[in-house]
Design a protein around this nucleic acid. Structure first.
Length: 293
DNA sequence: ACCCAGGGGCAAG
DNA sequence: CTTGCCCATGGG
């Protein structure tokens, strides 16, 4: 067991913030999950972290962004009052660094799903490809080749719904043609995102999530409904027409700078804390999609 | 019987 | 380059 000092770190906030989906909170107060397919059980007691498992200390520090102090994290953030306030109320929340493929698969599965359900899908995928084993520890996340070797129906049975086709085709692409993930790190963010969008089920938002949570590129800026809502709420003049996605990326770059992705983590988490269930487009009187007999 | 969910793809306008 | 609809499933 490893014990390490982790001041200004909030394990629960970090694992529950919609960055990673392979961790589950246990009744005994611990978190069970995987650090790059190494099973771990982690308990936080104040500034101390107890980790059960075979992960090494550098690995753990890297995974949880503990190789820099909270002061260093704050120093990276753009000098913007909204971002500062959000980060202050999320003290200890860090940026995860998950594996490329698992992160890709997670976010392909994330569309029109809530965080607990994405977590359930992650679990179901591990279970589907390791029949007979206990989920934890031991059930590694299935590789692209493993998924590609099975029929799409297996993914549907795991509850992926229409995401099954996307994930299966993305896995097939990876297994047959390969994919240069490390190459994404040396490309301009726009081109890196475009390259990821080659994968079925990966669009602009998912691409930026992968670049931020697996590539740890702080210039990636996932634009989901929450972030669009927040940008509109805090930065756009009321009454003005809602900007499109490329315009919002440009705005974020200009206004929040090169570490806008880090800012996004705090804006997202803080925004969700404050507004549990916001109605966005008053969908009240929308014409009926379809008449059923 | 609704509405909504950390979207993406595709066809039309 | 925008809008509209579909894609399955679970939860409120």
């Amino acid at each position: 067991m490893i014990r390490l000092e982790a001041p200004d770190f909030d394990l629960t906030a970090t694992l529950d913030s919609g960055q990673t989906f392979c961790w589950e909170f246990q009744p005994d107060g611990s978190w069970q999950g995987w650090i790059h397919d190494i099973p771990c059980r982690i308990v936080q007691k104040g500034p101390v972290l107890d980790i059960e498992g075979d992960a090494t200390e550098p690995m753990i520090r890297r995974y949880f962004q503990l190789d820099e102090t909270w002061g260093a994290v704050m120093a990276r953030l753009p000098d913007d009052p909204v971002v500062r306030a959000a980060a202050e109320s999320c003290r200890g929340l860090r940026c995860i660094q998950d594996g490329w493929w698992e992160c890709t698969a997670n976010f392909i599965c994330s569309s029109l799903k809530q965080i607990p359900q994405i977590r359930r899908i992650n679990r179901a995928l591990r279970a589907s490809f390791q029949p007979g084993t206990r989920i934890w520890p031991g059930a590694a996340f299935p590789s692209p080749a493993q998924i590609a070797a099975e029929p799409e129906s297996l993914l549907r049975a795991a509850g992926l719904g229409f995401r099954a086709r996307h994930l299966h085709r993305a896995a097939t692409h990876m297994a047959t043609l390969g994919f240069d993930y490390p190459g994404l790190l040396s490309l301009p963010i726009r081109e890196a995102a475009a390259r990821l969008c080659i994968l079925p089920g990966v669009g602009d938002k998912v691409a930026h999530c992968i670049l931020l949570y697996a590539g740890r590129r702080y210039d990636a800026f996932p634009l989901d409904v929450w972030m669009i809502r927040l940008l509109r709420q805090h930065y756009l003049k009321p009454g003005r027409r809602l900007a499109n996605i490329p315009q919002m990326h440009r705005f974020a770059e200009k206004h929040l700078g090169e570490h806008r992705g880090l800012a996004q983590i705090y804006l997202f988490h803080d925004g969700r804390k404050q507004i549990p269930k916001p109605p966005l487009p008053s969908a009240k009187h929308r014409s009926r999609k379809r008449m059923r007999s």
